[in-house]
Nucleic acid binder design. Structure first.
Lengths: 301, 301
DNA sequence: ATGATGGATAACCAATCTGCTATGCATCCG
DNA sequence: CGGATGCATAGCAGATTGGTTATCCATCAT
């Protein structure tokens, strides 16, 4: 691009494009119409082609103009967002929907890091079953949902950024009698906790059970709640089908173990889902911070 | 943002950030070090806080600086891309991976529209089974893949933008004897064409068959090829499990029909998959054009 | 320690910018 | 048709810009 293009040109261009005329914009900006006219003429010269068709006294975007407008708009928006990010003080609220998978391990780090970088933005977390969160997302009541990839049928108008891959495991208390015995065997002998029908991982678990001749198995209870599931597992011989992330902490401390299922069958994508056109304050940063956090962790681990 | 911030400031800032020093940048830009020093100082004043820590004679980005850098970088990139989009002449090549679903109906329109808007960019289309295309995408041999959402396990580092929802249907020639009889019944009486094991929709079809007590059904052949599948269907009583988009044209002309399956079970997301960080020429425009095309079609239809 | 390197600051200045007014011309609306 | 509205062009002027040189100071490497 010609280096003489200035932000002033871009701003003027964008205003004119939205307004559809010079005089109104000029008045609004407190300058005269000729000044603005010249600014626009300059830009068109620098870019090498007209941005508007002069139809009578109306200005309508050329194809090239419309194309450039998109880019220019994005550019200015990015810049403004950058400056806004620096301004201390209130920066609005970023509302995030949290699925259980990420609540234990990933999200705390992301949140802490986010707070460092964007202290002016308040975070509000909403939890619940995925369909609830997806509806909130669609309605605009939350700005993003972080967790497992939603079902394909729910993705219209949404955008998904992948963070990492995560499996469903079969968790038990550390001194569970099944020990290292293969999972199907253990499943027949112990009470089982399944994810509820509303959970994204439930179909995957059902498939596994069917494949191992355990279709129709009657669970002790259905839950993905850490507090509840863990409590039951620790106090009994129960086995729990759950995303690894949910019990990552307990696996780390040795309080719980993952029984070998003999298959890495039950893995799925975890990431950030947002509305495609959303520009909530800090959203882009949150997504990027999440990615960086995962990455650095992967490299460290 | 303070309106006195100029592109010059931004450019200088970005250069300094990458270089890590003033003198080198000043030399490279053909200006003196004091000039650049002042430019930077101005920017920091306008933004309200320092972008660099002066550690000895080294300049290292502050947290705020790093944050702003991301935004600023994106902004400049967007602007440059916009200007580049206007420049007529060679604009590089955008290599797209095409899955069968979109080849018939959606992609032709998108391509034509893209050609209008970005005539300088050459499009090169690659087809094949999805895992092949995903590998090409990952390796950088294609810039995007358009079609059904890839399996979760393949999405690491990728980004997915949803375009529309599409079902798998059971297609047959228009005067098929099964007529409006429910699909499960018809399936027992006719040869069946299934998608190959490498196709994304195969598991979905298998689930359907299992649910209808037809697991293990032996297909006439496995294919998602329009030419082959259509040829066989038209010349026989064969029934074909295929994404609606593949035979959309034939459904439109009445040459083929969709048998009622009594379930909208087999739907899935269609969209654009790309590397998260990719900035191939025209990529963003292609994705946006695809979205607009779908949208306008949805509104029109 | 010491010379070399790199950044900050100050004083200065020419070129450019960015506004203005005046004016012309086309179009739209009664 | 005629007045009002809106864009383009031209000429002009003050403010600003964006560079310069000179100088100082801190740090780093030898």
């Amino acid at each position: 691009m010609h280096p003489a293009v200035k932000l002033r040109h871009i701003r003027a261009f964008l205003d004119i494009a939205t307004e559809g005329g010079l005089s109104a914009v000029a008045r609004a900006q407190g300058i005269t119409q000729p000044a603005l006219s010249r600014t626009l003429a300059e830009l068109e010269t620098l870019l090498g082609q007209p941005m508007f068709l002069r139809q009578g006294r109306r200005l309508v975007l050329t194809e090239a103009g419309a194309l450039f407008r998109r880019h220019a708009g994005a550019a200015v928006q990015a810049l403004e967002a950058g400056a806004a990010a620096l301004r201390p003080g209130v920066g609005g609220t970023l509302r995030i929907g949290v699925l259980p998978t990420v609540a234990t391990r990933v999200l705390p780090r992301v949140v802490l890091r986010f707070r460092e970088l964007r202290p002016e933005i308040m975070l509000a977390a909403e939890t619940g079953p995925h369909f609830h969160l997806m509806r909130l997302l669609r309605e605009g009541a939350v700005d993003l949902v972080i967790g497992r990839l939603p079902g394909a049928s729910e993705m219209a108008g949404l955008r998904f950024d992948h963070l990492y891959e995560e499996e469903v495991i079969l968790a038990a208390r550390h001194d569970h009698p099944a020990g290292q015995r293969p999972a199907p065997e253990a499943l027949a002998a112990s009470p089982v906790i399944l994810p509820p029908a509303t959970a994204l991982i439930r179909p995957v678990v059902d498939d596994y059970l069917t494949a191992n001749g355990l279709a129709g198995l009657r669970p002790l209870i259905e839950t993905v709640s850490l507090a509840l599931g863990r409590g039951i597992c620790l106090a009994s011989d129960a086995l729990w089908f759950i995303s690894r992330g949910v019990v990552a902490h307990e696996l780390g401390t040795g309080e719980m173990i993952a029984l070998p299922t003999g298959a890495r069958f039950m893995s799925g994508a975890v990431g950030v889902t947002r509305r495609q056109e959303s520009v909530a304050p800090g959203l882009a940063d949150f997504a990027e911070i999440a990615r960086e956090t995962i990455e650095s962790e992967a490299n460290a681990g």
